[in-house]
Design a protein around this nucleic acid. Structure first.
Lengths: 118, 118
DNA sequence: TCAGGCACTTACAAAATAGTCAGTACTGGA
DNA sequence: TCCAGTACTGACTATTTTGTAAGTGCCTGA
């Protein structure tokens, strides 16, 4: 055991951010704590099931923290831990790059779609 | 159509880097062009099939370029395009973060494994 | 009263991803 | 001659991940 080391830091990151929606969830939490429903609306296209599943995994991994207000119509919030916050910082350059190349990437998606059709 | 826009740059990036090995492949190519076999050895654990499949997708997306030396025992190399190189830069902070938290993350992986067993 | 929201859970189906194994056409070395 | 290596391709299977749809218990507002 303990030979679970990575030959590249990236591999390590992917271990905890490997999930279709996880990077998005973490990113949206940089704006402060959010309720489950808020996240569902922010990360459009994620199903409720996946959101909650990923939220649970991120919590288990210590990236985010679940705060239960113990109110009767349930009120729960999620926020980044320090660990998660430092991870979220590494996401910023990617996000910027993506925003910058937005159009190019959208074009790629179209190209793929038509290639798939053909 | 053309409403294929993203509400976050991250979404755009994930469109082209969404694939278990793609970030690793891109990252390893920052060190210069590599042959298929070299990459297979660098990205340990990737199967030949997946490597080639991802390589093809990255090529189609304009992130990398395939150079065929047209020699008889096949000789092919892959290198980053300018587009790919700029993308690879955004990976660096993540990689660093991963390297830094390497131990913590390895521990998480163990914890997950034992949780799965129980 | 009744719909709707909250934060989930469960069962199940579909799709994406991954892996194994064989085969191609060719060369170079033992 | 036979084996290994090069860069692939394709068939087939397995695993993982994701999605859909329904249900739970409780409360609030119309």
């Amino acid at each position: 055991m303990s030979e679970a080391r990575f030959n590249c830091g990236l591999e390590a990151v992917l271990t905890i951010l490997g999930g279709k929606w996880k990077p998005l969830i973490v990113y949206h939490l940089t704006g402060g704590p959010k309720r489950t429903g808020q996240l569902r609306r922010l990360v459009t296209k994620v199903s409720e099931k996946m959101l909650i599943q990923h939220l649970k995994e991120l919590t288990d991994d210590g990236v985010i923290r679940r705060i239960d207000f113990r109110e009767v119509p349930p009120h729960v919030e999620y926020e980044l831990t320090d660990f998660g916050r430092s991870l979220a910082l590494t996401l910023a350059p990617m996000c910027e790059w993506g925003t910058h190349h937005d159009g190019q990437i959208a074009a790629l998606v179209c190209k793929r779609a038509s290639a798939g059709q053909a």
